[in-house]
Amino acid sequence: MRLRFILALMCCLTGVAHATPVATPPQKAYLSLIIDDLGQNLPQDRRVLALPGPVTAAIMPDTPHATEFAREAHRAGKIVILHMPMAPATGPFAWHPELPIEELEKRLNAAFKVVPYTAGINNHMGSRMTAQPAAMAWLMADLQRRHKFFVDSRTSAQTVAAAQAQKIALASVSRDVFLDDEPTEAAIFTQLQTAISLARKQGSAVMIGHPYPQTLAVLERELPKLKAQGIEWIDIKMMISVRGNQATAAHGKDGIYRTLHGN
């Protein structure tokens, strides 16, 4: 009996000596992808729908295939958002600072009618318009009434759009990385790696790209590799939930978005 006890004790001690410490699980790293400027070229836009994951389709209202492609994207199970033209963009739907709220509302209503199945909106251009606190406050209240979310494309450091959304707790998120300001495959690949690094550093990153052949070529090649790199590709609604309407360090302080006055 005593011998058995000694043998059992030795086994336990051996197990303790060779036990490996429990590893701390790595921080989750999430990526979301929005493709802007859709509705202009159906064969090109359909390549976006074929990307192997939850890409968000941002469709411009003043394009020849806006309504048709919105329906196709919805049928394909993709999240559709309105890519709303804002100054310095031009056209019948574009918002400009000098327009009264009544005209802004009229243009927004018309844009939503052209692009069905929208879950939210993001701004097309908009460096002038997103710096207008009163118009952005009205927009966020209107989106809340419609039960739609807002994505700030952050085309200007002067934007107050996300800050206005945050003030009324509207579901919102801000772009971190533009993939294709320089539309070469090498530059796009570099920007994708920047987004991946940022996701690892801060837990998440929101990417915006365009349906350029070079962008699609890089995405088709690289997106299937994300999982093996420890990156989780999630849709934009999930990203809004992950971030909880909080600003990242690049966009604000202590989770609060900066305004024009740095508050």
Rank of each mutant, 00 (worst) to 15 (best):
A157N: 14
P133C: 03
M140W: 03
V48L: 01
A110V: 12
T159Q: 07
P43S: 04
D142W: 15
E105M: 14
M86P: 01
R71V: 14
L49N: 03
A163K: 06
F112N: 08
T90Q: 15
H147E: 14
Q158M: 14
R145Q: 15
S153H: 02
A73T: 02
V151P: 04
F112T: 01
V151Q: 00
G53E: 07
Y117H: 15
P85M: 05
Q44L: 14
E72Y: 05
T56K: 00
T118N: 05
S127D: 04
H147A: 15
L51S: 10
T56M: 02
M60E: 11
R46C: 07
G120P: 06
Q132Y: 10
V80L: 00
Q44T: 12
L99D: 02
Q40M: 15
T90V: 15
M140K: 10
Q132F: 09
Q144W: 11
F149W: 07
Q158S: 14
H83S: 09
I168Q: 07
S153N: 05
F93G: 01
R146G: 10
R154A: 08
D62T: 10
T56H: 03
K113M: 13
Q144K: 15
L104I: 13
A134Y: 09
V115K: 01
A50E: 02
A50T: 06
L143D: 10
I168M: 09
S156W: 01
G53P: 05
P116Y: 00
M129D: 06
V80S: 00
T130N: 00
R47I: 08
P43D: 02
P43A: 00
M136D: 05
L82H: 05
R107W: 09
A57L: 10
L51D: 03
K106C: 08
S127V: 11
T159M: 07
L51Y: 05
A111Y: 01
W95D: 01
A73N: 00
I121Y: 13
H147G: 13
E102W: 11
H124P: 10
R146I: 11
T130G: 04
A165L: 05
L49Y: 02
E102Y: 11
S127E: 05
Q164T: 12
A119M: 14
T118S: 09
V160N: 10
K78T: 08
V55E: 00
F112R: 06
P64K: 10
V114L: 12
L51T: 02
F150L: 15
L99V: 08
Q166C: 04
A161C: 06
M140F: 07
G120V: 06
T56N: 05
A137C: 13
R47W: 02
G53V: 07
